[in-house]
Structure formats: C-alpha cells, structure tokens
Nucleic acid binder design. Sequence first.
DNA 1: GAATAATCGAGACGGTACGTCTGGTCTTGCA
DNA 2: TGCAAGACCAGACGTACCGTCTCGATTATTC
Lengths: 205, 205, 205, 205
Amino acid sequence: MQSSTPAGRAGRPRSAAADTAILAATREALVDLGWSKLTLGDVAMRAGVAKTTLYRRWSGKNELVVDAVAELFDQLRLPDRGTLAADIEGVVLQFAAILARPEAKSGLMAVVAESTRDDALRERIRASIVDRQKRLVVEGRARAQARGELPPETDPAEAARTADLIFDVVAGAVVHRTLVSAEPADEEWVRGFTRVLLHGLASAA
Amino acid sequence: MQSSTPAGRAGRPRSAAADTAILAATREALVDLGWSKLTLGDVAMRAGVAKTTLYRRWSGKNELVVDAVAELFDQLRLPDRGTLAADIEGVVLQFAAILARPEAKSGLMAVVAESTRDDALRERIRASIVDRQKRLVVEGRARAQARGELPPETDPAEAARTADLIFDVVAGAVVHRTLVSAEPADEEWVRGFTRVLLHGLASAA
Amino acid sequence: MQSSTPAGRAGRPRSAAADTAILAATREALVDLGWSKLTLGDVAMRAGVAKTTLYRRWSGKNELVVDAVAELFDQLRLPDRGTLAADIEGVVLQFAAILARPEAKSGLMAVVAESTRDDALRERIRASIVDRQKRLVVEGRARAQARGELPPETDPAEAARTADLIFDVVAGAVVHRTLVSAEPADEEWVRGFTRVLLHGLASAA
Amino acid sequence: MQSSTPAGRAGRPRSAAADTAILAATREALVDLGWSKLTLGDVAMRAGVAKTTLYRRWSGKNELVVDAVAELFDQLRLPDRGTLAADIEGVVLQFAAILARPEAKSGLMAVVAESTRDDALRERIRASIVDRQKRLVVEGRARAQARGELPPETDPAEAARTADLIFDVVAGAVVHRTLVSAEPADEEWVRGFTRVLLHGLASAA
DNA sequence: GAATAATCGAGACGGTACGTCTGGTCTTGCA
DNA sequence: TGCAAGACCAGACGTACCGTCTCGATTATTC
C-alpha cells in the first residue's frame, strides 16, 4: 500500500495497525455519514489516530475512500456452480450484495464522480477496484471454455474487447439498478439479466 | 393602485431571468470546478445574483445541480432511423454525447452518490432525469411494434419489468463505459452493444 | 478603528458590540493564559463570536493585542497635585498600576518584542499606545511652566528631544523595575526615582 | 571494582560540540525568523542535530533562547576611561550595541514577556543575564570611589537600593529607546542621558 | 574483548492551533 | 415584498509545530 519501508531505514517505522484502523473507521464513517459529510478529522478520531497520521499516508478524502472501498471488493470470489450461467449469477449476486452495503454505495459513486476531474484518482480506482473485478470475467470465461460451454477464443484482441463490454454491462447494470432505480438486484432480477446477457453474447458472436 | 401579477402576491415578483442565469452558471461552474469544488457563493457570483436569491429558490447544492443537469437531458430525442436497432443506436449515441460533457459527468454521478442517503433527492432525480429518459424506451418499443419488428406485448407487468431492465442495462453500460472505463462510447462500441442487447432480448423472450 | 463604513454602503453593517466583546475577551484571555498561549479561537469563543468575525477586523494576534492593551492606557490622566514632582509621581504611579496588571504585562512586552521584526506593528504600537502617553509629558511640562516651576522653553527642537528622553527614562525604568527586576514600583520607589529624574533634568540643563 | 570517571556515568557522553552548535543556530534563527516564528525543529536542523538531542538539554524554547542571548551579554566589559561619566558612557554604548543586534532584540524582550507568567524563567533570566550586568554598576561605583569621584558608601542597604535604581533606569531607558522609540542609542543620546543620570544621583543624595 | 548503557540521527506519533473557506442565515438600504 | 451586498455563526479544511516515542547505529565505560 504505502508504508512497507523497503530495507529498514532510519526513524520510527509506521504503525501497521494504524492503516487497518483508519480504513475500518472510514467505512464506519461512510455508513454513518455518507461521503459528503465524512470528514477526515472524524475518521481520525474514530480510528484513534491523529489527523497528521492520516494525511501522512493518504493525500485526501478521495484516495482514502478508494482504498477503504477497494477492500470490500476483494471479498468477491468466482464460485464454481457447474454452469456458466450459474457462475455468473453467483458472482453478480455477490457484487450486488456488496453494492447494497451503504459504505459501498455512498463511497464508490462519489469517488467515480470525483474521478471525472482527476486522472490520478481514476487510475487509482482502476488499479484498486476495477482491474481486480475484471479478473472474474476472464476466469469465468476460462472455466467455461474448460467445461466446453464456450469455444476457445481465436482472436485475443476481440476477446479483450468482449471482456470489457461484458464488464461494462454487468457492472453498469447492477450499479444503475441498485443506485438509480433503487431496486434490489435480487435473485430473480439477476436470473433475468444473466439470461439476456448470455443469449446476447451467444447470438451476437 | 390596482395590483396585476396574475396569481402573484404583493411585493416585487421574482425575476424569471435569475433562474435561467443561475442554472447556466451552475453548469459553467461544474465545467470549471467539478461538483465537489462548486460552491453556491461562486454560482451566485457567476450568475450576478445574491446568495440569498439562490437559497430562496433551491434548498441546497444537490437540488440545484439536479435541475441544472436535467436541462441537458431534455435535449434527448428518439430519432426515426427506420429500424429498431438503428433507433436504439441513435438514442444511445445521443445519451453518450451528453454524458461526455464535463458538466454532466461531474454533476450526475455526484448527485446519484448523494441520493444514496437522501430519499427526497433520489425522488427528484427520478422525476427530473430518469423518468424523462425512460419514455424513450417505451416510445421506441411502440414504434418497433408498429413497424412489426416486435410483437405486441401480452403481459403489461412483464413489459414494464423488461423496460426497466433495458433501461438499467443501457444507461448503466454507457455510464460505466464513459466514467469508469473512461473509454468513448463511440459508434463502433454502440453498434456492438446494441447487437448484444437486441439478440439477448429476442432470444431470452 | 476598522469598521466605520464611511457613508453607509450596502450590506449588513458590522456589529459594534462585537468589537467591544472581542477586546474584552482578549484581555481576559491574556490574564488567564498569557500572550504565548492565547489563541484567536479561544478569544472568539470567549467573546461569543465566530473566528471569521475576528479575522475580518484584525489581521492577527499582534494587532488584536495592541488594541486590547491600548484601551488600558487610555485610563491614564495627569493629576493636578500642586507641584511638578507630585504630578509626576501621580502619573508614574498610575502607569505602574496599569503595568502591574497581568493583561498589560503579558501583552505589552510581547508585542514590543514582535514589533522588532514588523514595522507596521511598531507603528501601530506607537500610534495606539506610545503617542497617547507622550502627551502626558508635554501637558505636565506646560502646567509646570504655568506655575512658574519651569522656565518657558526657548528651543522647540531641544524641548522635543528632552520630552523624548524623559519618556524613555520614565517608561523604561518603570517597565524594567516591574518586569525584569520584578519589584513593585510603589510610592517609595516612585518618590526616589522622581527626585533623581527632576534633579538630573534641572542640573543638566 | 573501583569506579573511576569522577562524576560521569556509563554510556556515551554528550557531545560538547552540539551545545555550541545549538546555541549558535538559535541566534541565527532569531536573526532570520524572530522569536515567535523560531521553531525548535528548525534550530535542530540548522545545528545538524536531532530534535531529541535538543530536548535532552533544554526544556523548551524559552530556556534555549535565554541561554543563547545570555552569551551575547557576556561580552560586556567595564572600560577604564578615566572618569565615572566616561566609564558609564562606554558601558552604556556597549549595551546599546548589543541590544541593536536583531538576535538580542527579538529574543530578549520575548523571554521577558514570557517570564511574566513563569517564575522559573524569570529566575533563569535574572541569573543568566541581569545579575551579570549588575556587577558592572557595582564595579563602576567602586572604581569611582577609588578615584575619589564618589564618597564611600555609609549605608550598605541604601547603596544596594541605589544600585538597583541605577540599573533599572539605565537598562530600562536604553531598551525603551531602542525598541519602543526605535531610535538609535548613539553617542549623543548616551551623553545626554548620562549627564542627567549623574546629576540626578548627585543632587538627590 | 565482550557486555552494558547512554547518546545520536531520523522520523512517526497524538495533539493543538493556525488562517482560510464554505454553508446557511440574518440584517441593511434600495427598488 | 424581492433583491444585492455583505456581516454573522458554525465548523471542516490541510499545514505546521509541539513534545514524545520508537528505531537502528554509535561510542563510551565496565566487566
């Protein structure tokens, strides 16, 4: 993350516990206050840490929230449910469950909004959150190919483009359903969505 | 000394020009500063208006931004390009073009993020922005049915559910592509996306 | 002072009560905390005023303390005790009494120390405090001349130089006695000091 | 098992060079920044020393500055110019020259101001600075008595009281002239001041 | 020569105040 | 009554120092 101190240099080393406490406090504050009313002073207090300690490690609210939210998405796992459709449904449901949590809702969209004016922030979001989710698409496809549900890809560039499209559609639809339409992305919805997605991809190939 | 002002009460009437100026100033400030650095004092100054005037008409930053952004989406029109696929591509491209403008990017996602903790705000967004877009889905389907491209719907509840799904998928995918992936939703992408969507809907029926 | 707003311009006028409350709070804080631990935030709180209100009127701690201390010295009056010696003793005792108060002790020397690196501050001290005291020397001499105790001055430049010398000696001695030697400038000391001063001036003429 | 090193304990001894460097760095910082903007961290950096080293030897800024300034006044010497008046003029000019230096101006008055709320600090100032100056008064009187310019004192208590008065008047006047009036205590001024002082003391006896 | 013990540099730590900025509210006088 | 101007209270901002605390690395004495 930030600390690490490669080859033990001079001075007191940074407290590893502080990082953990700060990120947890950030999520707690997101739940209680939401992004716009979250203040770094409050987070520091909740974490039992001085404001300076926080600023020493993160340059601002956006960066902190990205890291705090990123940890939530690290829980995502690709389940092995036997079929491609079931695997997708499983991972989408997990994604929806995370997005239903107030700390994710509040934080994620806000930093995405901020990232429209801050390239470094967008890059951080991509590295910390998006790319870690994208692996699920690739893994899922590989598993389906192993099962014989999908043919092996012939054109790698085309495969990458399709993976990106899938990712935009899945993540976008779940986010929009959850945040804008404010309806739950429950099993029924996920089943309908997955069916459309898979048929669309199969027929359009 | 006979009063006039149709339904107006006594005293000086509100300036209609002020509303226009304020909303325009808000969009200008969104472009220059983004949502998080936009301040109502600054908007008032740009509009040549006192802060009090602004607070008399909007209860806060979020409501103001919703109204300012909503005006952008009123430009959306369903084009008649002859086929359902072409109609969809046309409207999606328009949507993408609006979303590519910095005042929309910055403002829209931020108020959506805020709306996760403010039901009144979410309702305002739905009324001012979402429902005005959703009509395009319904119109497009009606036109396709008239052309014979789609069968008339049998179950109205199912039809509504499908319209919602379409809307979440379309809006979500374009937003995610534009904001998170930070890639342009250009003609090529829109064509690929539309193909998957239509095939998916047709096959899944 | 600062406010005044010459010919009533637009906007809400500054509260006159705030100035009074702030200066009183400053003296109170000087008593409780001394100069170095006095904070503008604390003064604002004591005065029941927002920090911004304070900064709108004073540019910093030094300027504020000068004004707060200056009001103390406005109490100085030249008493009419019949003879020059008695008049001097009277005014020196008053001066000593003010300097014995903790808000004067703490504040005055600190701003003088600061003024060694801030010409504007030194000018403010001179205008607000020193010149208002210096009038006492001139008045006292005029009264003594009227009584016939002193001859009328012949050379105005020489007279001004002597007034300055008197002022430096009187103010300097009392301050040094009070602050550095930390002994009271009581009646006995003042009597001895005045005798030396008057004889010195008379003989040296 | 016979210990050696007289009073020394085990472990690495303190660096003597550090003390010198720190005091010099303190005076340098006083010149560059003045008392109020001088920070111990900055002094440590200038001295090429860690903050801990500094705190191990001085309890705070005030104590450090007292010691740094005290070294300046150790340069004062009572010159033998043949007459009491000339001797006094000589030493007063030396005193004025030291006080004209920015590190003395800035530092001395500030710690005096601080000492109004800190008895230990006042005692340190008295011991390190004031008493070392006061010897000059006593020496000067003894030399004048040896020359026959002054009668031998009869009452030791009265003599001490007079020495204190002289000291308050001399030091006070020079300080006030230099810092408050911001005029140079040059030869001309010192001559006029000395004349008044000596005549006053002689006539008032 | 090791063991012991204090000092040294570096720099992170919990705090506190800084001076500025914004959010909303409240007077003013003019229209 | 609306409006521009601008003062008002409240409170967060990000920075700078404070004085303390770990660290690993010296540098002396003591065994």
